[in-house]
Design a protein around this nucleic acid. Structure first.
Lengths: 113, 113
DNA sequence: ACTTTATTCAACCAAATAGTTGAATAATAA
DNA sequence: TTATTATTCAACTATTTGGTTGAATAAAGT
């Protein structure tokens, strides 16, 4: 029973897992399809998905022999709220705005990792 | 040279480090004073502070024999922006931009007027 | 000069992490 | 039934992590 935030931030700390989350932004997906753009084994991806599931960042539902993965927003929101509550963030920064716009345009997950 | 977000999220994943950050919200502090409320060794705290420093979440400045630690907001902001951007990637919308700006302002109410 | 205070270093340990490979399970297709 | 496909399990490895202790360094204070 580790604190949820531990698991959430820990899950987000890995670039492969962040990339998986971005891929899932596009659509719900099967494990094999998620694994496709990566160079690591399917078993490794499977483990990453378990970590993401335990953190509550995604959910997995088996239908037939395929396990569908979908984003769950609540956990990410919890992390967001923690940071927001923490406060002390800069006032409107042009930097972050530019970064935001750049990323909006790209939509290439690998560029955001 | 791991990705900055790796280090930031990884640093935030540990409850001791999150607590240290909150303590530092109150004021800049020396290592020993930060360590006071914890039950672990000073050396362990020292290591945590190095992790936080490497992530850019705090800075340390030696004055005399005391090393002063202070929050640095930029790294936290980067994590914040990443999460926020994550939620907004789906549609490229003016709405999301406006929302982005609105939230930026809300973070620091004193800048509103 | 000696002592105390503040912090880190070095060596170690146990547990966790991210990866591998090969076998196992489970559902569908031929 | 026999393959094929989708996913996980098991066992292993290398690296990282969070902690310990005791010694080392550095700057004051007396």
């Amino acid at each position: 029973m580790p604190h949820k935030l531990n698991q959430i931030f820990s899950a987000l700390a890995d670039p492969t897992r962040r990339k998986i989350l971005m891929i899932l932004l596009e659509d719900d997906m099967a494990v094999t399809d998620i694994a496709d753009p990566f160079d690591i084994s399917l078993a490794a991806i499977s483990k990453h998905l378990i970590v993401l599931t335990n953190a509550g960042l995604i959910s997995q539902e088996r239908r037939g022999r395929v396990k569908w993965c979908k984003l769950e927003t609540e956990a990410m929101h919890a992390a967001f709220v923690w940071i927001q509550t923490f406060g002390k963030l800069d006032p409107i920064s042009l930097d972050s705005l530019e970064e935001f716009l750049a990323k909006e345009k790209l939509l290439n997950p690998s560029d955001l990792g």
